[in-house]
Nucleic acid binder design. Sequence first.
DNA 1: GGCGCACTTAGTACCAGGTAATAAGAGGTG
DNA 2: CACCTCTTATTACCTGGTACTAAGTGCGCC
Lengths: 186, 186
Amino acid sequence: MSRASISKKERQKKLMEKVKDDPFMKDEELSEHFDVSIQTIRLDRMELGIPELRERIKGVASRNYQKVKSLESREIVGELVDLTLGLKGISILETSQEMAFERNKIVRGHFIYSLAETLAISVIDAKVALIGVANIKYKSPVIAGARLVAKAEVKKARANSFIVWVSIKEKQTEVFRGKFILVSLD
Amino acid sequence: MSRASISKKERQKKLMEKVKDDPFMKDEELSEHFDVSIQTIRLDRMELGIPELRERIKGVASRNYQKVKSLESREIVGELVDLTLGLKGISILETSQEMAFERNKIVRGHFIYSLAETLAISVIDAKVALIGVANIKYKSPVIAGARLVAKAEVKKARANSFIVWVSIKEKQTEVFRGKFILVSLD
DNA sequence: GGCGCACTTAGTACCAGGTAATAAGAGGTG
DNA sequence: CACCTCTTATTACCTGGTACTAAGTGCGCC
């Protein structure tokens, strides 16, 4: 062969990477890419424990299926379980590993904030509500897996500005408390 | 057959739903589920334009492959473009339609908050930093598509507590301003 | 020079989960 | 009754593999 061929070790290392960041290549394509026979690719996959194309794809699909659903539903943060428009509301969020710092499993603040903010906006009886000002306090860290219950109460309501208090509890302990001043744009 | 069998139309409707929320079933399993022959399932799929299992899985995999990456990278909200640990930092976020309310394209506050909070944590020179208290103000609404530049500055640094100011601008206008009191857990 | 050994390639049988096409019952309905 | 829709069965073939056997190929070392 005219081209300088690489060692087995090197090829396997590259194969690992290749498959990792593009799991959609069939053995035939991989064999062309590395300029070896299809059998060599298959032997390599065996040695490296890389599953066949279909299994790889299935893996990608099912790993991400859950994930996307949970990430997407985050757009409507929490689940509204009770609501009296213009007065009060309750929303629940089940925290997960993905919402937390890896090293210590403590849920990132902005997920808690988002729960509170979303609820505060929902509870206001206005077509469009935006946050103007917020004063918030994280009272104790939340460990991933905790079930958070947020309660919002409208403290003041004027024509186009509202003050809403939100308190979030895990079981009996309050983990977050915030005051939101909301502005409606009508 | 003893059980009351459902009409073709009804079955096809249910098949559509079934496949949509569980794309991982093979024809054989579907045929058992609906108590019809495998050929009927295949005819139904033809009529409804539902692709075969492998194609469905491939679809899920590739659709979500991108998505998860973009959603996950949102965990580190914004792109850190400059950082002097313990002093200051700059982060940029390109806002998108998905971050906004549908009706008016105004970016939801918590995405802006998340940008600020994430930056505030990054800028602190501590292994683990949590938000204690935050005072924030949204100064003007942000329309989806805007490019937000967040600047953070450490105002005070004690052994395990820090005060960080964050200002977010779109072009020349400041859209957000916040003070975070962070606590480190060492 | 020749032998051995790792590496590579080739070829065959078989499998899952289908497509495509053809044929044949089952069961109303005019 | 014949017709028509719906359903089922059967068969040949396809893709992207697995599993296994066998046959080169290079080269390193004695």
